[in-house]
Design a protein around this nucleic acid. Structure first.
Lengths: 180, 180
DNA sequence: CCAATAGGTTCAATGAACAGACCAATGATG
DNA sequence: CATCATTGGTCTGTTCATTGAACCTATTGG
């Protein structure tokens, strides 16, 4: 996050977390990774982020161990960006922050709803399944769908287009779903 | 957050949340507010943030409805910054992000531990009490204490000094605890 | 040969963050 | 009465990060 000089000395795990995912676009990139976005150009089009910034953030997230690069083609070498184990554990904070935003910072509520793929029940406030019980539902078992009460945004890129129908988290999306 | 131009059109509650608390210092200010920090100078000393930036962030958080100004003295008028209802609901995301930072971004684990004030049990990964069951523990029922496995940082301000002993969240701290 | 695809890098201009000095109202101190 | 300390700021110049646009490289398809 490069927060001045003495950020590293903050006696708080939160400050350390923010050094990794607190940068302007980082959490949105991680969110897209949960949605199944893997390729540079898909992040680029879906986020509307400057290319140079995307390069910097992806590299930083890889260096921090949140994402890893996975080659999907040789000649010319191309790779996607996938969540590591540590990255996958960001699902909890991400989901909760998203919930908070839906309740307090978005007129009309969230654009997407999240349900347990196994039983179909909507996740509760901490991301657990109210029907199945147990702890938080792992992201691989979560299905997202658009909120019918919200008419879609004016976005038009492969990722947004794919997300108008229900989609299981972490499943490759857009270009990655149509391999060359 | 002023993320370029088109941030507002992001079709995601997360982006909206980040507009409110995604700015560089915002979440650390909110964290301090949970710790019981209320006064400008205490935020200033504990965070090591530039004064102008603190002014801007506090005003933004008030405008966003996360904090509110509460006068604690007339002549000269002075006020503290307290969490609103919406602000209090940030405890979940904040706690989870902090947990994540403790596990993945901090050598040696977190500096503070959080327990249920009612029964003394440490909170679980989503912030619930494993002994009492039920949903997430509200912040007013949480006690924080320094992690004995971590020797204290080299910080020396009223807030840090107060936090070396167990402290209940939201209870006024530092200057506010010694009213004039 | 030409264009398109994919994933970048480089650049100037802008905006935000930073450190430090300064300011204003009041109450305490000598 | 003069001065100083407290509290919560504002102002200023410098540095750093972000932005948008153009450019670059390697390869495949037509």
């Amino acid at each position: 996050m490069a927060l001045g000089t003495d950020y590293e000395q903050q006696d708080c795990a939160l400050a350390r977390a923010l050094e990794v995912v607190g940068e302007r676009w980082s959490l949105l990139i991680v969110r897209d990774a949960f949605y199944g976005v893997q390729r540079f150009n898909d992040f680029l089009a879906h986020l509307g982020i400057p290319r140079a910034v995307l390069t910097a953030r992806l590299n930083a997230l890889v260096a921090a161990g949140v994402l890893r690069k996975e080659p999907y083609r040789q000649a010319p070498l191309r790779h996607g960006y996938l969540l590591t184990g540590a990255g996958l554990e960001l699902w909890g904070p991400l989901y909760q922050l998203s919930r908070w935003g839906g309740r307090h910072a978005t007129a009309g509520g969230a654009h997407h709803l999240f349900a347990h793929a196994v039983c179909g029940a909507d996740l509760d406030v901490v991301g657990s399944c109210p029907r199945c019980g147990g702890g938080p539902v792992p992201p691989a078992e979560v299905v997202m769908r658009p909120n019918p009460a919200r008419t879609g945004g004016r976005w038009d890129d492969p990722v947004s287009r794919a997300l108008v129908r229900p989609h299981r988290l972490l499943e490759p999306i857009a270009s990655a779903a149509v391999p060359a």
